Amino acid sequence: MTDSTESRRPRASATAKRQRLAAATARVLHEQGVERTTIADIARAADVPAGNVYYYFKTKDELVEAALEEHTAHLNALTDRLDRLPDPRERLKGLITEWVAQRESTARYGCPTGTLATEIDKREGGLDAAAGRVIRQLLDWVEQQYRLLDAPDPAGRALALVGAYQGMSLLSNALRDPEIMTREGARLLRELDAPS
């Protein structure tokens, strides 16, 4: 038995609506934070009736999980794109360039994953582990690039690079100064070009 076109269309529409809600959730949580965000805010951002949100997500924690899935999907798309570059050093430079390109948003709202991880760490429910997995995935990818470069202590270098990003994101946000991202990004690029 096969699905008819008519029976597939509602499922595709439901999947698209759920995806739209997840993307809106990630964006609104980044801009407003978990505690300040309401279901109505998310529904408005996704352009769906508020009651529809509950059809796809029963609790606010499920919405936070959906936002973390969005962050994972964004990270996967970014690293897949960077993996097409032939050289691991160029991949790392591409990552830094991507971070700097987001400087205006970062200055206003902070790092999307980092700020969410910090906020949900203070809540009950175990979502902090899910946020940690997204950050761990980034660390592992960066470490792999350093391994491919035969750099000494690739895990330590990965931690330093991702930590530098989190630090420059925090300072850029706290001081509302996107140029911190520009200056620190340029410094990180110079360090990558320096002989080991």
Score class of each variant (00 low, 15 high):
33 G>H: 00
26 A>R: 11
151 A>V: 01
124 E>Y: 07
129 A>L: 11
97 T>A: 11
36 R>S: 08
149 L>C: 10
30 H>W: 13
137 Q>M: 14
63 L>T: 03
18 R>A: 10
191 E>K: 09
55 Y>M: 01
116 L>A: 08
135 I>K: 10
64 V>A: 13
45 A>L: 08
119 E>F: 02
171 L>F: 12
188 L>R: 11
103 R>D: 07
22 A>I: 06
49 P>D: 09
124 E>C: 05
172 S>L: 02
98 E>P: 00
103 R>V: 01
59 T>S: 06
179 E>L: 11
186 A>W: 01
128 D>K: 05
123 R>Y: 05
148 L>R: 14
152 P>N: 08
35 E>D: 09
22 A>D: 06
188 L>I: 14
40 A>L: 09
44 R>C: 10
144 Q>G: 14
147 R>F: 04
73 A>D: 08
136 R>E: 11
91 R>L: 08
155 A>K: 08
175 L>G: 02
53 V>S: 00
46 A>S: 04
71 H>D: 06
140 D>N: 13
90 E>K: 14
35 E>W: 13
196 S>E: 09
13 S>N: 11
19 Q>W: 00
28 V>P: 06
81 R>Y: 07
122 K>P: 01
14 A>Q: 15
73 A>P: 02
173 N>F: 05
90 E>D: 13
32 Q>C: 07
63 L>E: 04
140 D>M: 10
26 A>W: 05
23 A>R: 11
87 D>L: 12
10 P>Y: 13
95 L>Q: 07
27 R>V: 02
160 A>P: 05
172 S>G: 10
172 S>W: 02
158 A>L: 13
83 D>W: 12
55 Y>N: 02
126 G>M: 13
117 A>W: 00
18 R>H: 07
134 V>Y: 03
77 A>N: 05
162 V>I: 14
65 E>V: 12
123 R>N: 03
4 S>F: 01
162 V>R: 08
158 A>T: 11
32 Q>I: 00
8 R>T: 04
18 R>Y: 04
76 N>E: 10
132 G>L: 04
137 Q>E: 13
54 Y>D: 00
162 V>C: 09
122 K>R: 14
91 R>M: 08
52 N>K: 03
95 L>Y: 15
162 V>M: 06
41 D>G: 04
176 R>E: 06
155 A>R: 09
61 D>W: 01
163 G>T: 15
174 A>N: 09
9 R>C: 02
128 D>F: 07
142 V>K: 01
37 T>W: 03
119 E>C: 03
157 R>E: 08
52 N>H: 02
85 L>W: 09
22 A>F: 04
117 A>N: 06
86 P>V: 12
152 P>R: 09
125 G>M: 08
48 V>M: 00
192 L>P: 09
9 R>S: 04
50 A>F: 10
81 R>S: 12
15 T>Q: 05
100 V>N: 04
81 R>A: 13
188 L>C: 10
173 N>H: 12
25 T>Q: 10
156 G>I: 02
168 M>I: 12
169 S>W: 02
116 L>H: 09
140 D>E: 14
109 Y>K: 03
107 A>E: 03
191 E>G: 13
27 R>G: 03
85 L>K: 11
37 T>N: 04
175 L>A: 05
121 D>V: 07
92 L>P: 11
96 I>E: 01
157 R>V: 11
64 V>P: 10
54 Y>V: 01
87 D>P: 02
39 I>F: 07
173 N>V: 00
6 E>Q: 12
152 P>D: 14
123 R>V: 02
146 Y>A: 15
